[in-house]
Amino acid sequence: MTSTTSAHDVCSLEEVPPGEGRAFAVAGQQVAVFRHRSGRVSAVQAACPHAGGPLADGQIDERVVVCPLHLNAFDLTTGESSGDCAPLRVHPCRVDAVGRVSVEV
């Protein structure tokens, strides 16, 4: 598989409230960005693999996001579902010194 990814500047950290998620279009893809209470960020595909639920509206902790529609949980690091849904696509992401969030797509 030859896929190349590159980092894209997506938003400032302020745009995502602590413990919540927001959806963004990044290089033509829908990405949900989460800001953990610990200050970390995670980014995954925005639509739930189960039935297209809006994951950015889900609830998170340091490990998982719970989809708002049928409450399936997905690991934000590996993308794996704790039930038997297909895994999520996980996008590496980071916050820089001035609080800009970038996501690799």
Partner: peptide
Amino acid sequence: VTPGQFRTALPLVDLPL
């Protein structure tokens, strides 16, 4: 109450269903 409280989270690809 929060930034983007009412911002869409819809992945508008082939939705709404």
